[in-house]
């Protein structure tokens, strides 16, 4: 159990880094899907250890909604830019990797200082959770493409779910169900906005939006 949790959380963290430097939009969305499936697997591994049905539902929902449905929605909505490469970004990739490493360290230090006594998962998993949240937000800041920013926010949300999994072994099925539906609706709306944006300025580069057009 501990080994499975360690392996899954390490992979989740690595995928977080992969999203930070993914060049192709398709690669970033695929990375998000893989990360969500890993998160679901972690919940299922916890279910195998505790037999808590909430965790089973959480694992299956995570894989179904975040691993399959949301990437499919993004692919459908952002079809015009899906296969493209992002050419412009705010932070270069080696710098982004170093900042990401720093954020990971901050996550682990923060996890060590929280007044939290590990019941189900070991403390490093909490560190991974905080680090993934920070990495997701940083991805949203460092990239200029709207789809990649959306992927960054979704990674941050994965991190928050992981925090909930560590601290309270799931936030309760009702809350999580609501969160999943909200995220799905949010992604659909943002995907719609991205598609509209591409229609209007024929690009998904958000820095284009700072200029006024008459």
């Amino acid at each position: 159990m501990d080994l499975a949790a360690a392996v899954f959380s390490t992979l989740i963290l690595l995928v977080g880094f992969w999203l930070l430097i993914a060049r192709q939009i398709r690669a970033a969305v695929d990375g998000y899907a893989i990360q969500s499936i890993l998160l679901g697997c972690l919940a299922l591994a916890l279910f195998a250890a505790t037999r808590d049905p909430d965790l089973l539902a959480l694992g299956i929902l995570t894989i179904a909604i975040k691993g399959l449905a949301i990437p499919a929605v993004i692919e459908r909505q952002a079809k015009t830019t899906y296969g493209k490469r992002e050419l412009q970004y705010h932070v270069g990739f080696p710098t982004a990797l170093l900042i990401g490493a720093g954020l990971t360290l901050i996550g682990f230090v923060a996890a060590a200082r929280l007044p939290y006594h590990p019941a189900l998962l070991a403390e490093p998993v909490l560190g991974v959770a905080i680090a993934v949240t920070l990495l997701g937000f940083f991805t949203a800041m460092a990239r200029r493409d709207a789809v990649l920013q959306l992927a960054g926010l979704l990674v941050a949300e994965n991190g928050v779910i992981l925090v909930g999994l560590v601290v309270a072994s799931g936030l309760g099925l009702l809350i999580e169900f609501a969160v999943f539906l909200d995220v799905l609706v949010g992604v659909a709306v943002m995907g719609f906005l991205i598609a509209r944006m591409h229609e209007t300025v024929s690009s998904t580069d958000t820095s284009e939006l700072s200029r006024l057009r008459g």
């Binding site: 360690a6 880094f17 080696p94 990971t104 682990f108 070991a122 560190g127």
Partner: peptide
């Protein structure tokens, strides 16, 4: 090439962090 080797740097850095917490 700097991105590839930056990736290896991050991997080894994470290894140290994970080990020191594990």
């Amino acid at each position: 090439v700097p991105e590839y080797l930056g990736g290896t740097f991050v991997l080894s850095f994470l290894s140290i962090v994970l080990f020191s917490l594990g």
